[in-house]
Design a protein around this nucleic acid. Structure first.
Length: 435
DNA sequence: TCTGGGGTCCTAGGACCC
DNA sequence: TCTGGGGTCCTAGGACCC
């Protein structure tokens, strides 16, 4: 298809400071209070309210490094509550589907919409944007911004502009701007703000004298390709309104599934690592079966804490191939523990372990090995796993587990200040009192 | 004391084959 | 002493994203 000759219209909808905003929905007293949400293990700030951003706290700042600042300014910190955020994210998605049949959930807090033809239903795209903001605010309590443009990369930038310029009231539409307005605006945007330009490439572009989005837009695509590869060439085209990135409204199944965690306390014993790895495999296998895949190889890794220079360091991982693809938690655990025993060395203080399910394929088109005479057996296994998943979904995670996942908890994450899972657990519903 | 987790894509280079 | 060339596949590493 010749994208260059087909005018497209995209919207990017992005929830402002998503995790923080979710917490505020259920605790309005947090409005205008500086709030951060911490990563797993209460390690780093992964979401910051505007008040916290104004204090100069960068994304990913370790929580222990901002203790002084937190005390001085009364920063409130929450452990992450992914159950809550995931559910709120789904609600936003459902609402957006009312506005366009073509919605791509790009990340937990961002959606692309394709609007071809739909914009005719609204006086202007700005009206559409305001309608979306209004309904999401009313139905979920979440604040969002909307960017409109003729390519996804530009829509991302339009959203960025909508967030920065208060007078735009949360909506920015590039599609009706003149070439002059676009040039002026893009000249004020650092090239690093462009989607696809990260730290490394940003530095190189600056060194080459390309400082703004406008300069990148005017660079030669062929030259960019020679310097940086095909991705940057596409980015340049996209900045010129030539849509190269299609809307992906059907999520393709994951090609790999990872589950890894840092430990709450340093771990030395094999037994504890076995518990942790068994637990991670259990989580990963649930995701695997949920997307109807089976897995052909398991990667296990362990490492020590790289920040503790005084400790002897050890990192290792191993890939264990399976004789035939499977979704059976028990087989996957056995493979992972086999690998773990291979790479485990006593005498180190381990900080993190993880597993990666690789070589995923569709469980419906599973290819049997020539030794597999057990079609009936694998059907039984499928039923067993299905039952396990159903019970755990119905009665809560880990109602039924595999024995090696264990009951010790030294290795479990710190998560000291997590709010209730207000929207997905009956016993954690928010209370409302009438006066 | 305390430093996240989960993904994708592209490219270069080596192994191997004919 | 002379010592090809082209294709494919795989992997590791690097870059990006949120």
């Amino acid at each position: 298809m010749t994208a260059a000759f087909t005018s497209q219209q995209f919207a990017l909808v992005d929830v402002n400071n998503f995790y923080v905003s979710c917490e505020r929905v259920f605790n309005p007293k947090l409005e205008s209070v500086p709030v951060v949400v911490l990563s797993n293990n209460d390690g780093c700030a992964v979401a910051r309210s505007n008040e916290v951003k104004a204090l100069g706290v960068k994304m990913g700042t370790p929580w222990f490094q901002m203790q002084d600042l937190a005390k001085r300014h009364g920063i409130v910190a929450f452990s992450s509550n992914y159950t809550l955020y995931g559910d709120m994210s789904n609600r936003v998605l459902m609402i957006l589907r009312d506005f366009s049949p073509e919605v791509e959930m790009y990340s937990i807090d961002e959606c692309f919409l394709r609007l071809n033809g739909l914009s005719a239903l609204w006086p202007t795209l700005n009206d559409l944007g305001q309608a979306i903001r209004c309904r999401i605010r009313q139905w979920t309590g979440l604040p969002i911004c909307v960017g409109f443009a003729s390519s996804k990369t530009m829509a991302k930038l339009a959203n960025h502009v909508a967030k920065k310029h208060i007078d735009l009231n949360g909506v920015c539409d590039f599609t009706t701007m003149s070439e002059n307005e676009i040039s002026r605006l893009f000249s004020s945007l650092d090239v690093g703000e462009v989607w696809g330009v990260g730290r490394r490439i940003g530095e190189r572009l600056h060194a080459m004298g390309i400082h703004t989005a406008q300069a990148l837009r005017q660079a030669s695509p062929k030259w960019l390709r020679a310097q940086f590869g095909v991705v940057m060439e596409r980015t340049c085209d996209e900045l010129n309104g030539i849509s190269c990135l299609a809307l992906e409204d059907v999520t393709p199944p994951r090609k790999q599934i990872i589950c890894s965690r840092s430990f709450g306390e340093l771990v030395t014993s094999l037994e504890e690592l076995i518990e942790a790895v068994s637990t991670y495999i259990t989580r990963a296998a649930e995701k695997l079966r949920h997307q109807q895949s089976v897995c052909g190889a398991v990667h296990v890794f362990i490492h020590t804490n790289q920040f503790r220079k005084q400790d002897e360091q050890y990192n290792n991982g191993i890939v264990v191939s399976l004789p035939e693809p499977t979704g059976d938690t028990r087989v996957l655990i056995a493979a992972a523990l086999f690998g773990l025993r291979h790479i485990y060395r006593p005498g180190y203080k381990y900080k993190k372990a993880g597993v990666m399910l690789m070589e995923l394929s569709n469980s419906k088109q599973r290819q049997s090995s020539i030794f597999d005479l057990r079609g009936a057996v694998s059907d039984r296994v499928g039923e067993l796993m299905q039952t396990l998943d159903n019970l755990n979904r119905e009665y809560g995670q880990d109602t039924i587990t595999i024995g090696s996942a264990g009951v010790r908890s030294n290795w479990k994450m710190r998560c000291d200040n997590r709010t209730p899972r207000y929207t997905t657990r009956w016993n954690e519903l928010p209370h409302a009192f009438a006066r």
